[in-house]
Amino acid sequence: MQRFWSAVGFLTTAPTPTHRFTLDQQTLFWFPFVGLGIGATLSALAFLFGALFPAPVTAVLLVGTWAALTGALHLDGLADCGDGLLAPVPRERRLEIMRDSRIGAFGVVALTLMLLLKTAALTTSPVIWPALLLAPMWARWLILLAMQRPLARSDGMAARMRTALNVRSLALFALPAVLLTAALSTWHWQVAPASVVAILTALGVLRLAERRIGGVTGDVYGAVVEVSEAAFLCIASFTITEEFHWIVVVK
């Protein structure tokens, strides 16, 4: 269980038994399952909060708990990427900005918009618990996908974490998320397109990072997690209103 606890300790703030931290392919195998654990916790809290508070309050509490469960690690990466990838400066300056622990205007905007988007999606989503269950799971698998991209620099977290996975391993590690998505889509059709959009959005972030800084960093991993989760929640909140149905029928 050493690899499992290594994955839990790295990705969450949950207390873990004393163990020697190990990061290899066996540890990476557990990443999506840790995401599932985060999602299961949030789903259970969604029922509890939903029984006590109105939808907007429930959504804010869930987003706050989400950040607490991960130590805001990914949010910090998103903010750094906002400052580094969006600022109109040369590549080397972008990397310097992303190393800086201070947050700038672009980072504040990216962070605020992402938190607002997650909160708004949870407030209105008709499939809140399936979305909470799957979004963190897919996001942690997407970290494994991001690890296969070129590095922007030879040092830092991304370089230390880098573990090569072949296509077969990536597909195998994604299988639990695929099966759970397929099972839940039988009752909640939104989760299937939400999964696809989350993956495509993450690929967009990786493409942007490669164009702007030449590859990925640890901050890019965090941005991939946050952006893919927000994209999943956004699509999962989609509903076919009576007005939309009427327009489609008329056309």
Rank of each mutant, 00 (worst) to 15 (best):
Ser43Lys: 06
Pro54Asn: 10
Leu75Thr: 03
Phe31Ser: 12
Asp24Lys: 14
Thr18Cys: 09
Phe10Thr: 08
Val34Phe: 01
Thr41Gln: 05
Arg93Trp: 03
Ile97Ala: 05
Gly82Ile: 00
Gly104Ile: 06
Val57Trp: 12
Thr41Leu: 14
Arg99Glu: 06
Gly104Lys: 10
Leu85Tyr: 13
Ala14Asn: 07
Gly37Asp: 02
Phe31Leu: 14
Leu11Met: 15
Phe31Glu: 09
Thr41Cys: 14
Pro17His: 13
Thr58Val: 10
Gly37Asn: 01
Gln2Asp: 14
Arg20His: 14
Leu86Cys: 10
Trp66Arg: 05
Val89Ile: 15
Leu95Met: 09
Arg94Pro: 01
Thr65Gln: 08
Ala72Gln: 04
Pro90His: 09
Ala67Val: 03
Leu45Arg: 08
Asp76Lys: 00
His74Gln: 04
Asp76Ile: 00
Ala14Phe: 15
Ala14Asp: 04
Ile38Leu: 14
Gly84Val: 00
Ala68Thr: 05
Pro90Cys: 06
Thr70Tyr: 06
Thr22Trp: 10
Pro17Arg: 13
Gly71Gln: 02
Pro90Asp: 11
Phe10Pro: 01
Phe29Gly: 02
Ala46Tyr: 00
Leu95Pro: 01
Asp24Tyr: 12
Val63Tyr: 04
Ala72Phe: 05
Phe47Leu: 12
Thr70Trp: 04
Leu78Tyr: 04
Ser101Ala: 09
Arg99Leu: 03
Ala14Gln: 13
Phe53Arg: 05
Gly35Pro: 00
Ala40Glu: 07
Phe4Lys: 14
Gly9Glu: 06
Met98Pro: 07
Leu73Gly: 01
Gly64His: 08
Ala51His: 11
Glu92Ala: 09
Leu75Asp: 03
Thr65Met: 10
Thr65Tyr: 05
Ala40Trp: 07
Asp24Arg: 14
Trp66His: 13
Thr58Ala: 11
Thr65Pro: 04
Met98Cys: 09
Arg91Gln: 15
Leu78Lys: 05
Asp24Ala: 12
Trp5Ser: 08
Trp66Asp: 13
Leu42Phe: 07
Val57Thr: 11
Val60Tyr: 10
Pro32Met: 02
Met98Lys: 11
